[in-house]
C-alpha cells in the first residue's frame, strides 16, 4: 500500500526538514556493478574514502573494512582511483584491493 503523504498543514516546519534524511534513502539497489573489497591487498591510504560520492566506504580505526552496500551506487570511482589498483593491480587482478563485479551475482545479499 502506498505510504500516506502529509498535507501542507502537517509539515513539521515548512521551510526545513530534519538533517541527515539522505541516510534513509537507500540507493544501494541502483547498483549494476558492485565494488568488492580485498583487505589483504589494501594499504589503507583512504583514497577511496575521500573520493566516494556517497560516503559508502566503511572505516574503523583508520582502516578500510568494507562497503555500505545500502548506499553504494556502484559508480566505481573507488576502484578507479585506488593507487594499488592502478599500480600492482594493473596487470595482476589478484593484487587489487578493489574489484568491480556484476551485481547480478550478489542480488540475494541485499
Amino acid at each position: 500500500m502506498e505510504k500516506r503523504k502529509m498535507g501542507w498543514k502537517e509539515l513539521p516546519d515548512a521551510d526545513s526538514i530534519e538533517a541527515g534524511t539522505s541516510a534513509e534513502f537507500k540507493t544501494g539497489d541502483w547498483r549494476s556493478q558492485r565494488p568488492v573489497f580485498h583487505g589483504e591487498n589494501c594499504i589503507h591510504c583512504l583514497t577511496c574514502w575521500v573520493v566516494c560520492p556517497d560516503a559508502a566506504i566503511l572505516v574503523e580505526d583508520g582502516k578500510v573494512v568494507g562497503y555500505d552496500y545500502d548506499h553504494c551506487k556502484g559508480c566505481g570511482i573507488c576502484a578507479n582511483e585506488c593507487p594499488i589498483n592502478k599500480a600492482k593491480g594493473k596487470e595482476d587482478i589478484s593484487k587489487r584491493p578493489i574489484t568491480m563485479e556484476d551485481e547480478k551475482n550478489f542480488k540475494n545479499d541485499i
Binding site: D13, D15, S16, I17, E18, A19, G20, T21
Partner: peptide
C-alpha cells in the same frame, strides 16, 4: 529553526 543550532539539526 536555524542552521547553526546543534540541538536541532536541519536541512534547508
Amino acid at each position: 529553526t536555524w542552521l547553526l543550532n546543534p540541538e536541532k539539526k536541519i536541512t534547508i
